[in-house]
């Protein structure tokens, strides 16, 4: 149960940008949702800033929660190849921008976001969230000696496979691991 909740949180963090862009594009600031004398006088950019900070905080929460996940270990010599993967997910992320910019009403947003959310959740691969970069995390594709390909999220800057020695890596899902601090 906890695991599913955690994965829902990660999926939300990874896809929330779509909703934020939609709100900014259509001028839906806080006063639109919550008309109140205080919010009415607030400049729009403050609302947009709040929208942007929300997923950052949630991402921080998900990183903090990751220490309750199951542990694995990367021993010396287990890693055969390692490849930096920061760039590889950016195209798909840019896709969110364009989709969000072309949505014009709530109904379309709910459908598009719903579909995107479900597929991100089920694919288990698109959890990577650019906000991790803000926290200093890097993304790597790692191939182990037995040929298994793993997606590793880590704050270390790995270049050589032989340097990948991780005493505790948390398992987000069967293909994605995050190195604990």
């Amino acid at each position: 149960m906890g695991n599913i909740a955690f994965r829902l949180l990660l999926t939300f963090n990874a896809t929330s940008l779509l909703v934020i862009i939609f709100c900014i594009q259509n001028n839906f600031s806080v006063k639109y949702f919550y008309p109140h004398p205080v919010t009415m006088g607030m400049p729009d950019y403050l609302s947009y800033l709040a929208y942007t900070i929300a997923p950052v905080l949630l991402t921080w929460l998900s990183l903090a929660l990751s220490r309750f996940l199951g542990k694995d270990e990367f021993k010396e010599g287990e890693t055969e190849t390692i490849e930096h993967a920061n760039n590889s997910f950016l195209p798909s992320y840019l896709g969110y921008f364009f989709v969000a910019l072309s949505i014009s009403d709530w109904q379309a947003l709910i459908f598009v976001y719903g579909i995107l959310f479900v597929f991100t959740f089920l694919s288990q691969a698109l959890y990577f969230n650019p906000i991790f970069l803000l926290f200093g995390y890097e993304f790597y594709n790692v191939r182990t000696q037995s040929g298994t390909t793993i997606f590793l999220i880590s704050r270390e800057r790995y270049k050589k496979p032989s340097t990948v020695i991780i005493p505790v890596a948390r398992r987000i899902n069967d293909y994605t691991f995050i190195e604990s601090r």
């Binding site: 199951g70 000696q145 298994t148 069967d174």
Partner: peptide, 10 residues
Amino acid sequence: GDLDTKDCDD
């Protein structure tokens, strides 16, 4: 060899 748990799913 070393049983690698990363090869096993949960």
